[in-house]
C-alpha cells in the first residue's frame, strides 16, 4: 500500500467524513423528532393524523432509500418541487429514519405496562404528568437500544448520498478511485473512515445500555 498516497488524501477524507457525519446527524435529529411525533399521534389515536402516520411508516419502511432519493432529487423537480442536494439528503434520510424511529419509540411505549399508568392515575397525576414522569422515562429506556441501532443504520445509509452529487465519504472515494491508480488505498481509507465514525456511536450505545440496565428497572426485564 502506498502510504504517501494515503497521507496526502487524509484531508479529502476528513472533508468527506464531515459531510457524511453532518448530514447523517441532521437526518438522525429530524428522524427522532418525526418518529416521536408519529409515535405520539398513533398512540394517542389522533384521528386522520394517525392514519397518515401509519401509511407513511409503511411506505418508508418498505422502499429503499436509494429509490426515495431518486424520486426526491430527479423526480419531484419535474413537477415543480425542487430541493437542493443537501435538502434532499436530509429529507430523504428523515423520511426513512422517521419511520424506524417511530417503531422504536412505539415498542418502548408498548413495553410500559398498563398498570403503571393506572398507578400514576391513582396518585392523581394528570394524563400529561403521567406520561412525562411515569411512562416516557420507562419507554425511552426500553427504546434506547433500538434507537441507537437506528442511528447506526441511518449513518450507514448516508453512503447513498453520493447519487445526489454530494461530496460525502463515498463520493470522495469514488472520485479518487476513478482518477486512477490507487484503488486499494482508496477503499481501505473508505472502510477505515466509516469505522472511525461508527465505532464511537456503537461504544456510546453500549455505554448507554449498560447504564440503563444498572440504573434501575429489571422489575420485568431481569429475574
Amino acid at each position: 500500500m502506498d502510504g504517501a498516497f494515503i497521507l496526502a488524501h487524509v484531508p479529502d477524507y476528513l472533508s468527506g467524513a464531515w459531510v457524511t457525519l453532518r448530514f447523517g446527524l441532521y437526518g438522525v435529529a429530524c428522524s427522532l423528532a418525526l418518529g416521536l411525533l408519529c409515535c405520539l399521534v398513533r398512540s394517542f389515536r389522533v384521528p386522520v393524523l394517525r392514519q397518515i402516520a401509519g401509511g407513511y411508516i409503511e411506505l418508508a419502511r418498505n422502499t429503499p432509500l436509494l429509490v426515495q432519493l431518486f424520486f426526491l432529487y430527479a423526480g419531484l423537480p419535474r413537477v415543480g418541487i425542487k430541493f437542493s442536494a443537501e435538502a434532499c439528503a436530509v429529507i430523504g434520510l428523515t423520511f426513512l429514519g422517521g419511520a424506524y424511529m417511530a417503531e422504536a419509540f412505539r415498542s418502548g411505549l408498548e413495553s410500559v405496562d398498563k398498570s403503571q399508568t393506572e398507578a400514576g392515575a391513582c396518585i392523581g397525576l394528570t394524563r400529561a404528568q403521567n406520561i412525562r414522569y411515569v411512562v416516557f422515562p420507562q419507554a425511552l429506556a426500553t427504546a434506547v437500544p433500538a434507537l441507537f441501532a437506528n442511528v447506526i443504520f441511518l449513518i450507514k445509509e448516508t453512503s447513498v448520498f453520493s447519487v445526489l452529487a454530494m461530496m460525502d465519504l463515498m463520493n470522495v472515494a469514488d472520485t479518487l478511485r476513478t482518477s486512477g491508480g490507487h484503488t486499494v488505498e482508496v477503499l481501505f481509507m473508505l472502510a477505515a473512515a466509516y469505522l472511525m465514525i461508527l465505532l464511537p456511536v456503537s461504544l456510546l450505545a453500549t455505554l448507554a445500555e449498560r447504564r440503563l440496565r444498572y440504573a434501575g428497572f429489571g422489575d420485568r426485564h431481569s429475574v
Binding site: 450507514k156 453512503s159 484503488t183 486499494v184 477503499l187 472502510a191 456503537s202
Partner: peptide, 19 residues
Amino acid sequence: RFMPQLVLLYLVYFGFARL
C-alpha cells in the same frame, strides 16, 4: 454491522479486481 453495504460492494467489485 459497521460497514455500509455499499462500501462492502465497492470493496469486492473494485477491490478484488485489484487485489
